[in-house]
Each structure stands twice: as structure tokens, then as C-alpha cells.
Simulated assay, not measured.
Amino acid sequence: METQERFEDGMLDVGDGHTIYWRTQGNAQAPAIVILHGGPGGAMNPQWADLLDAQKWRIVLFDQRGCGRSTPFGELRNNGLADLVGDIEALREHLGIAQWAVFGGSWGTTLGLAYGAAHPSRCLGFLLRGIYLARSEDTDWFLWGVRRVYPDVHARFLDAIEQAAGRRPASAREVLEFSGAPLSRFDATSTALARAWRDYESTLSRVNHEKQEDESDARTEEESSRAAIAMALLERHYMADELPPPALLPAVPRFAHLPCQIVHGRFDMVCPADQAQALADAWPGATFQIVDAAGHWTFDPGVATVLREAGKRLRIEMDGAKPAA
């Protein structure tokens, strides 16, 4: 069969005043896979598509509400988990795709599981990296519990909140409470706090903290600040106002007949590996790989290599997957 590689992009009006940016690439005749970025607010990273064989997949990426090229930027109204699940389905229909696989990382795994629960018949399989179940204890770890491993990094994070808000948080709840107003102002104080939030998460994400080139190195100062604001603003919004979602693990049996590849760094300090283990326990047919000497970052040592192989296995498993009973 002759393959047809193409690149397309556009804007899709999803209602509620929101428009999302999308792009497709790869083999237009192959099974589709939608990539769900992290954050919330992280925006798409085209480098994720490089982890997949473009000859074997029609790859779909998009920026979730309020971030990246989607508009309006930083909008929190009508921006919740159910809205994003609806956007995925609207994009599928817009592109004329009957079914697709789901590739998500971090918050993208939360969103992917929620989408699978809502639309299991539209899913072909799952590739999930850095599992975030979005339970209260999972969010509390990121905002507070991790200080037991990174006391210095956590202290600098609290310093930034205190400088912006005039009060120093004494709990995860106060991190969210005190940071809300400063992040919403879109001024110099907001930018400084957003950058501190971004740096905090970036540090926790990697095992090797030496300078490594990534997609952020090519950004201008303005682009870097804008990306940091979207990440911090939307993460804080979801953690404070939208989470925890309906329990995700009890919904797994709705789509557990589908193939799934779970990849998680053993030393993930953003989303500890017990979350991935809990998902694997709920999904007996899933393949679960813990990557040693790796953290939360998609391109941390070993993670990218394992993801490439997991993507190949998923593609093979999809061909032999049995339909739901």
C-alpha cells in the first residue's frame, strides 16, 4: 500500500468561546493516534511525534484550552476536564477519524483515561507515560510531600509564592490559595511566579540536572514567559478548582479490553510510580515498564527509548486486539 505523508493544521471552534489549535502529520492511511500533552497548560510538543513511526501512524496533536496557540490564552472559564474530553471528541469528528489510539504523558494520562471512560468505543489502545491519577494525595505530593526529597527546591518554590503573595504557604492547600491572585494578574509579578513554578516542576521532573537541550531552548524570552504563565496558571486552576476528578481507576474496566503500554520513571518526583502501579493493577492486560535511573521528563534517560519500543508494540497489539464483548 502506498503511504501518503502529509502535514495539516488549523483552528477548531469548540464552543464556550474557546478555539483549539491542532495539527496532523504522518501516514494519512495509517491508524490515528492523538497526543495529549501534560500540564494542564503545557501545550503540544512536536518532539513527541518523533517517538512514533510516522509510516505506521497518522499523528494528531493539539493545544488544550487556554495554552499554546489555542485561544483565548489563559482563559479559565469553561476550562475543566469534561470540557477537554469534549474537545478531543470534537477534534476526532472534525478530522473524520472513526477511532484512534491515545498517547498521553503526565496530565495527558489523566485526560486520556477520562476520555477512554467517556468514549471507549472510539479508542484503539493507549500509550501512557508518567501516570497522574489526579487524586488528592497525588496533588499533595507534588505541592508539598516532595519537600522530603527536595527540601531546598521546595523552599525556593515557597519563597517565590511568598514574594508574590506576601504570605508563605504552610500546606499544599495554601500553595494553591496564595498563588491564585498573583498568577491571574498577567503582570511582572505573575511572570516571575510562573517562571518559579515552571522551574520547580522542571527540576522535579529530571534525575540528571545538568544542562540538557530541549524544546524550550529555542524559545524567545516572550515565548518562554508565555509558556510558563500558561503552565502555572492552568495547573493551579485545575488543582484548586477542578480536581480530584471522578475516580479514574474504577472506570478502567470499560476499556481494559484494549491494549495499553504504561511507561514510568522509577525516580519520578512529580508523579511517584505507585500511581502507575495502581493503574497496572487495575488493567491486567496492560504492559507496565518501570525505567530505572529516570524521572518524569519524557526525554529523561531511558524513557524515550522505552516509549519508542512501546509505541511499536502498541501498533502490533492493535492489529490483534479483540473488540469489546
Rank of each mutant, 00 (worst) to 15 (best):
Y21A: 12
T19K: 01
A98K: 11
L91D: 11
R58G: 04
T109E: 02
R69N: 10
L84V: 10
V34F: 08
V85W: 07
G66H: 05
S106Y: 07
Q29D: 12
L51H: 05
I88N: 05
A30W: 06
C67F: 09
D9R: 14
N78H: 15
L76D: 02
Q55S: 15
Q25A: 14
L81K: 04
I88W: 07
V34S: 04
T109K: 05
S106F: 10
D50A: 10
G86I: 03
D53Q: 10
V34M: 08
A30F: 09
D83G: 09
I33S: 02
E75F: 09
A49N: 04
S70K: 04
G17N: 06
V14N: 07
R92E: 02
F103L: 02
I59H: 13
D83K: 09
I33D: 00
D16E: 14
F73P: 00
N27A: 05
Y21I: 08
I20N: 01
G105N: 13
G104R: 04
H94E: 09
D83W: 11
I59P: 07
A43D: 12
A30N: 05
P46R: 11
G68W: 05
I88S: 08
D87Y: 04
W100I: 03
C67A: 11
L51P: 00
Q25N: 12
R92W: 06
W107F: 15
N78A: 15
H37F: 02
S70H: 06
V34A: 10
R92N: 02
L91F: 01
A28S: 15
N27G: 00
S106V: 00
R69M: 11
D50H: 13
